[in-house]
Amino acid sequence: MKQSFDVIVVGAGSMGMSAGYHLAKRGIRTLLIDSFDPPHEQGSHHGEPRLIRHAYSGGASYVSLALEADRLWLELEEASNQKLLVRSGVLNMADRALFKFQARIEDAGRAGVRVEWLDAAEIRHRWPAVRLPETYEAMYEPDAGYLFSERCVAEYRKLALVEGATILPYTPVEQIWSEGSGIRVRTRVGEFAADQTIISAGAWFKTLEPFVTLPIRAVRKTVGWFRSEPGLFDAGAFPGFTLGTDNGGYYGFPSIDGAGIKLGRHDGGLPWLPGETAAPFGHLEQDEGDLRQTLENYMPQAAGALLRGAVCKYELTPDEHFIIDRHPVHSNVILAGGFSGHGFKFSSAVGAVLADLIEGKKPSVDLGMFALSRFDTISL
C-alpha cells in the first residue's frame, strides 16, 4: 500500500465517506481511514432511516445546504442505481407555546421550498391517528422525507473505490502532526503522508487531542421501533415527523416494510467518551419508557410492542450548529464535526463542500455560521 496521498480523510462515516467520494471523483489521490468498517454501528449513521427537511431552523445557510444536499442525493441515486431518498413528506409539530414556525416558513418561501401551516384540527383530519391538543400547530413539507442512511454511506464507499480512493478500515489513528508543508498520520499499520487532511471523526474527536481540541461532547442516544396499528402509520400513508413537547423534542418515521414506527428523542442523552462501552438499549428504564410514553400521549395506536431498540451517538457543539472550518493553526487541515444529531441529511453536500475547500474553491454555500472562531473559549 502506498504511503503518500494528496488528501487523508480521518473518519470515514457519513461526512468523511461523502468527502472521499467527491475528492476521488475530482481526481484527487485520497486515503480514507476509519477505526471501524463503514457503514458501522459505532457512530451516528446506523439504524436507518434519517429525515431530510428543507425548511430548516437556523436560517438561510441551512436551507441552501439542505437543497444542495437533496440535489446530490438524487445524483448519488442515479450513479448507484439505488433508492436512497423517499419523499414521504415531513410533519413538524409543536406546542405553539414552545415553538413557532413563522420564521422557518418565511425562510422556506424565500428559497422556493413548499410548506403548509396546519392547525391541530387539520392535522387530525389528515392523519386521524395523531392526537394533539388544540395548542399545537405544524409545518408540513410535502417534498421532504427520509434517507436510507447506511445505504447512502455504503454507496458512497463503493463509488469512491471505483473512482480510485483507498479505504483503510479497522484502523484507529494514533497521532496526527504537521511535518514541513504536509501532514503525517500514524496508525498501527504504518504512517501516511498527505498535502492536506480532513478530520471528520464524529464522536471520536477526543482521541485526536492535542492536535485538535474542539468544543464537542458526545452523548449516548437511543431509538426504538414500535408495533403500530396496520395501515395507520405505514410508509406511504404516514409522513416522517418531528414533535416538540414540554417533555422534550422527538423525531420519527413511518413503519417501513413492517419494521414498526421509529421514534427517537433529540434532546438529553448520557455523556460518553471514546473507549467507553455504550450501554445497550434497555439498560435504562427510560430507554423505552420515555419513547413509549410519548407515543401513548400523541400516537397511541403506534405504542405497541417494542420490536427493536438501538443506541447511537450524538456529537454536540454548545450551540448545536456544525463546525466546518480550517484548523486555526494548520491551514492544510480541515475540520468537520459537531453535527449534533441533525447532520446526516446534509452529508452529501458537506462532502462536496469539503472537497471544494481542499481545492481552494469558494463553496457554493455560506459557511460563516459554521466557523470555529465563534467559540471563544476553545484551546488548541
Rank of each mutant, 00 (worst) to 15 (best):
L295K: 02
V219Y: 09
I123V: 15
V223F: 07
R186E: 15
T30M: 00
Y136K: 01
L132T: 09
V113Y: 04
A218S: 15
E106P: 06
S348V: 02
I256D: 03
V113N: 02
R71E: 12
Q175N: 12
Y298C: 12
I358N: 04
R29K: 13
R265D: 11
V350E: 02
G11R: 00
S44Y: 01
F253A: 08
Y251N: 12
G252A: 06
G289E: 08
G190M: 07
E209C: 10
G268Q: 05
E320K: 13
A259R: 11
G282H: 04
G240E: 07
I183R: 00
E77F: 02
R292K: 15
L132G: 01
L132I: 12
S178L: 09
S228Q: 10
L84F: 06
A302Y: 08
Q286M: 12
E288I: 08
K206W: 05
G11M: 08
L372W: 01
A355L: 03
S181Q: 15
F370I: 11
L51N: 00
P254W: 00
Q293S: 15
Y170P: 09
R29V: 09
G341D: 07
G224T: 03
R374W: 07
Y156T: 10
H40N: 11
M299P: 10
M17T: 15
A349M: 04
F99D: 07
P169V: 02
L273K: 13
D37F: 10
G240M: 03
Q102H: 11
I378W: 05
G248R: 01
D257S: 14
I52L: 15
P169S: 02
L168H: 09
V365M: 05
M93Q: 06
A237G: 15
D366N: 14
I28M: 01
L357D: 08
S347T: 15
T171Y: 02
P172T: 03
R157F: 06
G182S: 12
D267I: 12
V223H: 01
T135E: 14
L91T: 01
R265Y: 05
H342L: 08
G252Q: 04
E122W: 02
A310V: 12
E155M: 14
D376L: 06
P128S: 04
I324C: 04
P38E: 01
E41I: 10
K158G: 14
P230Q: 05
V113S: 02
R26Q: 14
A305H: 08
L316D: 14
L208W: 02
G309E: 08
R50S: 12
G109M: 05
S88R: 01
G368H: 10
A69V: 04
M369N: 05
G289P: 11
G337R: 00
S64W: 06
F346D: 07
R53F: 13
A165H: 00
P210M: 07
E320Y: 08
E320C: 11
H283S: 15
I176G: 00
M17H: 03
D234L: 05
Y156R: 11
S347D: 09
T222E: 09
H125F: 08
K25C: 10
